[in-house]
C-alpha cells in the first residue's frame, strides 16, 4: 500500500530519471537549438524536484530563470554563432 510520502519519492525518482536523460540528450546533440530545448526540459524536471523537496521559494526563482531567461539568452547566442555544431 502506497502512502503519500512513497508517492512523493516515486515522483522524485521519475523526475530525476527524466532530467538525467534530457541532460544526456543536451550534451549529445549537434543541433544547438535542440540542446537549448532539452536543457530547459531538464530544468523543468529540476523545478519539480525542488517543489517535491518542499522548497517553493527556490522553485519560483528557478522557473523564471531556467525556463524564461536562460533559454532566451542561449537562443540569442545560438543565433549569432550558428545553429549546428561543426565537428573537426
Amino acid at each position: 500500500m502506497m502512502d503519500y510520502v512513497d508517492l512523493v519519492f516515486l515522483m522524485m525518482g521519475i523526475t530525476a530519471v527524466i532530467s538525467v536523460s534530457f541532460t544526456f540528450l543536451a550534451v549529445k546533440t549537434k543541433d544547438l537549438m535542440h540542446a537549448v530545448i532539452f536543457s530547459s526540459v531538464q530544468s523543468i524536471a529540476y523545478a519539480l524536484v525542488y517543489f517535491l523537496l518542499m522548497a517553493p521559494d527556490i522553485v519560483l526563482v528557478y522557473v523564471a530563470v531556467s525556463v524564461g531567461i536562460y533559454p532566451l539568452i542561449l537562443i540569442l547566442v545560438v543565433k549569432r554563432v550558428g545553429r549546428f555544431e561543426v565537428t573537426a
Binding site: 521559494d57 519560483l60 526563482v61 522557473v63 523564471a64 530563470v65 524564461g68 531567461i69 532566451l72 539568452i73
Partner: peptide, 11 residues
C-alpha cells in the same frame, strides 16, 4: 523571485 519573473517580460 518577483524581479526574476518580471524581467522575463522585457526580454
Amino acid at each position: 523571485q518577483g524581479g526574476a519573473i518580471a524581467s522575463v517580460a522585457p526580454l
